[in-house]
Nucleic acid binder design. Sequence first.
DNA 1: CGTTTGACTGGCC
DNA 2: TGGCCAGCCAAAC
Length: 104
Amino acid sequence: MSKVGVELRSRIYAVVTRVPEGTVATYGQIAELADTGPRQVGGALATLPTGTECPWHRVVNSQGRISQRSETGEAEALQQSRLEDEGVEFQNGRIDLDVYRWEG
DNA sequence: CGTTTGACTGGCC
DNA sequence: TGGCCAGCCAAAC
């Protein structure tokens, strides 16, 4: 159970919030900007409520796919919906990172 | 203080 | 192309 310190979480949220609409960032990318490991990023987002204002849906794994978390895949579909709504195209259930990857 | 656990990643086969 | 292995970070036990 990866629990994340509140301070580290704040740092990760701050980075995620910087991801502009219509683009996506990988966990590794967020981790690097937050000066931590990718696992911590996932852990931090895991504690995030689904109804938050934080654009957690713009964070995907290095393959441009939505990572499945421990709980229901409900939010997973929501994530894809939100991204598509922002103009991010899914090809075969996956995002083309060469096009939509956020250039910090 | 050593072990366990994750919404991960990259390299290898 | 796709699955497996080892490395990675931080916190709870």
